[in-house]
């Protein structure tokens, strides 16, 4: 699986390239945009809108609440002190420690989950061009080995992940994608070497 990246000077030419790539038979799941600002989903490319990292936030929240409760109430149970007929477990501190740790874990879980779902930090060098930071638009096409259906999420519509160009070899797909992007107005192509 290799990636080829076209750098476009503006939004219009990048959009034109995406349209032509799709018309040629590349699947939406193979194409993504690289931009330095966020655009509405579907303006350039369509992404699967479902994400899972918020479940990790919820899981961390519950884990944090359990940890906080165990820390405050659990230790009070294990090491009971003289409380003068007051409850062994003090409600206020237990509530506060439980709540604060639940929120702390949830906040940390959100960041960790976000990075995990993004696949960051990236250990592998991927095609990129610093001109993207200056307002250029990158259109990246992921080339799969010839004859292999493009794999994407289970929630994708039937057929959306199988591009019409799969019958071509990887080299042919790459050449075709680069040619389309150049025709659409790409300033340059940054291609990843096959691993």
């Amino acid at each position: 699986m290799i990636e080829t990246l076209g750098i476009f000077p503006d939004f219009e030419s990048a959009g034109r390239a995406v349209e032509r790539l799709v018309r040629e038979g590349f699947a939406e799941a193979q194409i993504t945009s690289l931009t330095s600002v966020s655009y509405p989903d579907g303006a350039l490319v369509k992404t699967g809108r479902r994400s899972w990292f918020r479940w990790l936030t919820l899981g961390c929240f519950i884990a944090g609440a359990a940890a906080g409760f165990a820390l405050a109430a659990g230790t009070a149970w294990l090491y009971p002190v003289q409380t003068g007929e007051k409850p062994i477990i003090a409600y206020y501190p237990t509530g506060i420690v439980t709540y604060e740790l639940a929120m702390l874990f949830a906040l940390a879980g959100t960041i960790v989950g976000m990075f995990l779902e993004m696949g960051l930090p990236a250990w592998r060098k991927r095609p990129y061009d610093p001109a993207i930071a200056e307002g250029c638009i990158g259109i990246s096409v992921t080339i799969h080995p010839g004859g292999e259906a493009v794999v994407c999420g289970r929630e994708a519509e039937t057929g959306a992940c199988v591009g019409g160009v799969v019958s071509l070899s990887a080299g042919e797909q790459k050449s075709r994608a680069e040619e389309i992007m150049r025709e659409a107005g790409a300033l340059r192509i940054v291609a990843e070497e096959p691993s």
Binding site: T32, S33, L34, T35, S36, V37, S38, Y39, D41, L44, V45, T47, R49, S51, F53, M114, E117, M118, L120, A122, R126, Y128, I132, G138, S140
Partner: peptide
Amino acid sequence: RGTAREWLI
């Protein structure tokens, strides 16, 4: 890199 997926997440 600012991919569409990265921005969405």
